[in-house]
Amino acid sequence: MTDKELIQKILMNDETSFKTLVEKYQTMVLNTCFSFLQDRADAEDITQEVFIEVFLSLHKFKKNAKLSTWIYRIAVNKSLNYLRDTRKTRIIKRIDMFFSKNKEEKLQIPDNSDTEKEVNEVYEYRLKQLYQAIDSLKRKQKIAFTLNKVQKLSYEQVAEIMGLSISAVEGLIHRAKINVQKEILKNLKKNQKD
């Protein structure tokens, strides 16, 4: 069944067609949300909200547009809004974690180690550093960079979702990449001094 047929049937209150739509796009939506949120539970919650919004505003969807692009936009907006709305609690969480752990243990770059647990800790630490750096990007840079580098979408796809030219997207991604690396270095140096 094509997307057009699916939409028509959903608009006629056909429940199985909505189920088909969810099954078709659930992996895409979940992974898009996860690429921004980096938390499985949060990504699952937002995925549910994305499909509810899709269902409720399907009548507004322009027939000549691409359904996947439209769903991507909803997923990106919902994820970024969630990040914005929970920024305060996430910062408090980080501060809590900082004080609950030994300061030295938290701030020093973990040494490369043989045991699996320590390897995982090093990996987790680096992962956190990376996503904190991405989190510090401006909105447009964050969207373009995350969709291209984390979600592995092509420049063309990112341009379509963001409604920008390919060269504009290239520029955003290049600046974002430099800014992420700068932020990682800044935090590394800060942590080395502590």
């Binding site: 992996t27 979940l30 992974n31 996860f34 549910q48 680096r126 992962l127 990376l130 590394l188």
Partner: peptide, 29 residues
Amino acid sequence: ILYSELKQTYYIIEENRVLTPNPFLYTRI
């Protein structure tokens, strides 16, 4: 140390981490 750490932190982005949706997703929606 700095360069190696930067490289290993940044290149985590190259990894392809794909999540599989929960089988009860539709029921919850």
